[in-house]
């Protein structure tokens, strides 16, 4: 199994613990990664489409040239690229225009065949759950975990859950928590926004969302929350100390990246998954995992 790896800006920027843990987990799973190095940021929903679609078309063309599907480790990268890919695949005239105006000069052409998949989807749809289960070395028994998807791993439907069968994607993280042996602590906002996109425009509301999601999870007895989106992580972890002030009480809920979570079940130690780099202390998770070792 081999993928063109698109790590995204945040896994090497604000969440530098994400990139190495994803690479280690891929190695353990014997998933080969060829990193796309000379490609641009997806635009993250901030850049307008007239700029981000050509940039993403270029990324897809590079992967197509390698004959590989793309693997992402960020719900936002996944969502923005999936939406761009949907437009480029479903409208050949639009794709041709972008090829002609932006990619031809570099000798590139996007033919519309590249698949873009988040690691979470790859585990379920390509890798296979039986194979994954056979590699679990440390079932995370007794660890109480809430899922938090990130909007763009669930919506919009045409790009993310285009068929009835793929609507199961909306539940993958819930399923994975139980597959890895942990206890699922469901929360009402698991598919909602973390608040990150409005941190600039409306900080108060953004922090209120952090407080709402992490607070509910904590109240329901979770030890931690797991997310496939590093932007959610930036807000839920990085801004949790400030969100506590909104709520008026301590929350202290560790937020774990998806690859870290999988890595712990595969037998990696918390240190190898770089849990210590988080803003909210992950001590609770570490001590539970140590007890399981």
């Amino acid at each position: 199994m081999k993928y063109a790896f698109y790590p995204g800006c945040v896994s090497r920027g604000g969440c530098p613990e994400l990139y190495p843990s994803a690479v280690k987990v891929a190695q353990k799973l014997e998933v080969e990664l060829e990193e796309l190095k000379d490609v641009g940021c997806t635009g993250a929903g901030v850049l307008p489409q007239y700029l981000s679609d050509p940039i993403n078309a270029r990324t897809f063309a590079k992967a197509e040239g390698l004959g590989l599907p793309i693997m992402t480790i960020c719900s936002t990268c996944q969502g923005v690229m999936a939406q761009a890919n949907y437009r480029l695949k479903s409208d050949p005239a639009y794709r041709e225009k972008i090829n002609r105006e932006y990619l031809a000069e570099e000798g590139l052409e996007y033919r519309g065949t590249t698949e873009v998949k988040h690691l979470l989807w790859i585990l379920f749809e390509d890798y296979g759950l039986d194979r994954l289960k056979s590699l679990i070395r440390r079932p995370l028994k007794g660890l109480k975990v809430s899922p938090f998807y990130g909007c763009f791993l669930r919506r919009p439907p045409e790009a993310i859950t285009p068929t009835k069968e793929l609507s199961r994607r909306k539940n993958y993280l819930d399923e994975l928590i139980e597959i890895l042996g942990a206890d699922l602590v469901d929360i009402s906002g698991k598919g909602k926004c973390c608040g990150f996109p409005i941190l600039t425009a409306s900080e108060e509301n953004s922090l209120a969302m952090v407080a709402k999601h992490t607070g509910e999870s904590k109240e329901k007895g979770a030890d931690c929350m797991v997310t496939p989106c590093p932007l959610c992580h930036l807000n839920l972890d990085g801004n949790q100390p400030r969100a506590q002030a909104v709520r008026g009480e301590k929350i202290d809920l560790p937020i774990i990246h998806l690859p870290q979570f999988v890595g712990l079940a595969l037998g990696f130690d918390p240190e190898e998954m770089q849990l210590k780099r988080h803003i909210v202390s992950t001590r609770v998770v570490e001590s539970r995992v140590e007890m399981l070792a």
Partner: peptide
């Protein structure tokens, strides 16, 4: 700078010009 940065810059310049 990322390796493909110059190409990304060209996309920006062209896109902004056309806009």
């Amino acid at each position: 700078k990322r390796p493909g940065a110059d190409r990304i810059k060209k996309i920006f310049e062209k896109g902004e010009r056309e806009r």
